[in-house]
Design a protein around this nucleic acid. Structure first.
Lengths: 326, 326
DNA sequence: TTGTAGGCGTTATCAG
DNA sequence: CTGATAACGCCTACAA
């Protein structure tokens, strides 16, 4: 910038004014400065800029588990759109479900002075955030905070699981298998407990041997599903997949098993997916609005960044059952 | 940091040393400083840090079309992994296929002093980048640069399309419909020309009325597909979908059309998708390694950041045909 | 309308 | 081993 100033024969401050489009610059001076800028290929340094005033980077941080999972990437998309609308850029990082990585990423983002942080936590104890949260607003996504008071946007996991169970029960199924995982994850626990509640309400006992809650990947879910439906006796007649990963695995396992295909089980999957409607047999899904989750979370975060000191809110996004057309 | 220094009764520079784990600090002094840091909740400000030395933000920028498209999100995941490995964070922005947005995002990222830029360009004239590229290394992804010399990582689009056409031709199909878009997009043009080349090689004339290259969204592709297969006469017997969006739309259209379903057309889709193997009828896909694309691009970028002045490379990632098991 | 002085939080340099 | 001082690139406040 000093170079530009010299080249244009003006002071540094005048260049600054031109670059930022401030008023009170003679058109002629401005033109000369602009010319110099063009000639020298000058670009304003936003990082030095923020240093003085806002002390920020005009960016939001988003920590999710895995960008490759459509659930998270669609959240990321919504967050990015909302951020951009308010003039923020989005820094995305994947924790891969690892506590330590999560902590490291939080620290890195705070050091970079993101203006706010959206976090899908992998850890279950967030007291480590108390210090950061004092400086940088944090909004939790998909899973609630523990040990720190922050806003959170969650799904109605138990409600959705209830709907799933009720549908299968309503179709006359009693032997319902449940596949998903990892078992310890908040969303999984909630969904399983919603499932159990619906079963209890219906007076239908849960056969624990049909619960496979250690299937957190498509492959694991496929293996678990294959096993569940391989036995000759005591085979379940219906299947509840706890998330989109489990659904992909289960669908594969069921599609590929012994040909010609036996009668497929009734199936409900938590999380909608693009091709749910066109599989070889009907699948119902527990759908929800991931875009809304992202938008809501970004909105809450932007309010905090704007200085809101309201009591931390916990917003729950509804789920609904989408049955196949057939 | 001055506060910490005062609290610990040392100089500012000593605090800096401790924070950065430099050698030559007495353990006792270090302990005192650490204590003060903990007590005051101090966090190093990475943005001020970069101001002095590297003049950078230790981050890479990635501009893609849409995080919601699995093709791009899986690239983003690979890029993020590679970036993180080298100590960079990733700033993601969606151009939504819009030239102006692309330019604005590039400018914003350069102003933020990302150390390098990965770009899936929407524009077709990149001379505007010449100035930025001088300061910030740019690597093109999925589509080649025009008017600026930069590295690029591309797919073998024509080759993949050839494979697709050859498969359908080999199955005895001559009336092959092609659905996708937008027509002007580099990848689409390449794929269509690969398709035409294979048809020409086989001596099979292309029926232009079966080409629907304006179907850039699932909905548009579904409509085009429905229309193509609705007619009584001149109906195509096979379908080539130019990308994953078109495939989703086409599958929907074909799955939902008049029940009981007529005999489904033979189908090949460019881009693999998770459930390709389990649809009601067999679908072959032109698969490729998006993770490798992301990794390669990030690698090239990191080399440039490292100061490489090698002649710009253009890397082509191979495609292969994956036929259904059946 | 334009310019000068000072400082944002950190690190590099060089002296103690 | 530790500290004083000068940058880094820009903006705010005040002055001319």
């Amino acid at each position: 910038m000093p170079d530009v100033a010299e080249a244009a024969g003006v002071s540094l401050k005048t260049v600054s004014r031109v670059v930022n489009g401030e008023a009170n610059v003679a058109p002629e001076t401005s033109a000369r400065v602009l010319e110099a800028i063009g000639r020298l290929g000058f670009t304003r340094n936003d990082i030095a800029r923020g240093l003085r005033s806002r002390q920020t980077s005009s960016s939001l941080g988003l920590i999710i588990e895995d960008l490759g999972n459509p659930f998270y990437s669609s959240i990321a998309r919504a967050v990015e759109a909302a951020a951009e609308e308010s003039g923020f850029m989005l820094v995305v990082a994947s924790s891969e479900g690892d506590d330590d990585r999560e902590r490291r990423l939080v620290a890195a983002l705070v050091e970079r002075r993101v203006d706010g942080l959206l976090l899908v936590p992998s850890s279950e104890d967030h007291r480590y955030l108390a210090a950061e949260a004092a400086r940088t607003p944090v909004v939790f996504l998909d899973r609630p905070p523990h040990g720190v008071r922050s806003d959170a946007v969650l799904l109605d996991n138990a409600g959705g699981a209830r709907l799933a169970a009720q549908r299968l029960l309503g179709q006359g199924h009693a032997r319902i298998a449940v596949v998903g995982g990892p078992a310890g994850l908040y969303t999984m626990r909630e969904r399983v407990s919603g499932f159990r509640a619906a079963m209890a309400d219906a007076g239908t006992p849960v056969d624990e041997s049909l619960l496979r809650l250690d299937a957190g990947t498509p492959d694991a879910a496929a293996a678990a599903t294959a096993e569940l439906f391989a036995s000759r006796r005591g085979t379940p007649t219906a299947l509840f997949c706890l998330n989109n990963r489990a659904a992909v695995g289960a669908v594969r396992a069921l599609a590929y098993r012994a040909r010609p295909p036996r009668r497929p089980p009734a199936m409900v999957a938590f999380d909608d997916f693009e091709l749910a409607g066109v599989l070889p047999w009907p699948i119902a899904v527990v759908a929800h609005d991931t875009a809304a989750m992202g938008r809501l979370a970004a909105g809450l975060l932007l309010e905090r960044i704007g200085g809101s000191r309201a009591r931390p809110k916990q917003v729950t996004v509804p789920t609904r059952l989408v049955a196949p057309a057939g």
